[in-house]
Nucleic acid binder design. Structure first.
Lengths: 163, 163
DNA sequence: GTAGTCCGTTGCTTGAAAGAACGCACCAGG
DNA sequence: CCTGGTGCGTTCTTTCAAGCAACGGACTAC
């Protein structure tokens, strides 16, 4: 069936996963972060079906995360480059790397990241901006913010969210 | 068709997204982080189909991210609690929140996180552990790590990965 | 003119999501 | 005792997209 859409939920997580949509989206972006730009390279790196790749690239362009830029004439060929909005997703990919390295890599990290200049290992972690410390889910509470739609507030509270 | 599996790729991103699988997985976990534990609550909060929810909860339990714990007899009823492996995913959810708040919330964040003790706003960011600074995708390189399978190394290099 | 490159499009098959209905075990009220 | 309510799934049908392979089209190189 058609995918359920989450893009209008009053929740940043829901909107973000709606944007990513499925696994291929994330993997295409991963490749993009690693420097891949062309259809053929995405396809052979990922082994994704060509029709699916076409569809996903269009979605990413439409969502403003990739930009389709011509790199030659006759015939016109385009490459797909990250926009700022796309680059913002790098943090999500980094969080995935972190988790995969920690929990899904018994033999050690399959790939490591290094600073291009200094050569130092790059080791992403998620922290609170102000304390600089990791965040424990049990130590936080959730409440409606400025972007929470007025008309759903009563309902949400009645349902026991924001308890 | 059957979903393509990524769990054996030599890439932590691929393994992590394979684990998350689809959007529902992430949203179920989000609810779990916010304190939801019971079938009925997941279902009504998310509006997910009951059959799909059943399937997803089983997957999460099987993957070791949730634990099925009885909370009453006659009839026996179970609730679903996060394990440590599941709690590790919170950082990914936080990265999603961050991105959604930054790029997908024109009216401001729909929900805000607060420290349960201090009441201070919690503002997740992804940084390098050593420098404490955000990470720019253009400033990093990728190379094979200890967990990269020996037998694929030659192939990967020939393909121009790790260039 | 034959082969190769790059980027898609088309067509077929199958499996999974969506959605609603049903089942089952128990409790509470009248 | 019978009805209604709660909590947790299971079953069924329909629809839509992933997976896969083949094809096409515009060039370049030999």
């Amino acid at each position: 069936m058609a995918r359920t859409r989450f893009d209008h939920w009053p929740c940043s997580v829901a909107r973000a996963v709606d944007l990513l949509g499925d696994a291929w989206m994330v993997l295409i972006l991963r490749d993009a972060f690693y420097g891949v730009r062309r259809f053929e390279d995405f396809q052979s790196n990922l082994g994704i079906g060509r029709n699916v790749l076409t569809q996903r690239l269009s979605s990413l362009v439409e969502a403003g995360m990739l930009q389709r830029v011509p790199y030659q004439d006759r015939p016109v060929r385009h490459e797909y480059r990250l926009t700022d909005k796309g680059r913002g997703l790098f943090d999500i990919v980094l969080a995935l790397v972190r988790y995969g390295d920690d929990w899904l890599a018994p033999d050690g990290p399959p790939v490591v990241l290094r600073d291009r200049e200094t050569g130092a290992r790059v080791d992403p972690i998620v922290v609170d901006r102000h304390t600089g410390q990791p965040i424990d889910p049990r130590a936080i509470t959730v409440e409606p913010g400025p972007g929470f739609p007025e008309e759903h507030l009563a309902r949400a509270k009645a349902d026991g969210r924001f308890a």
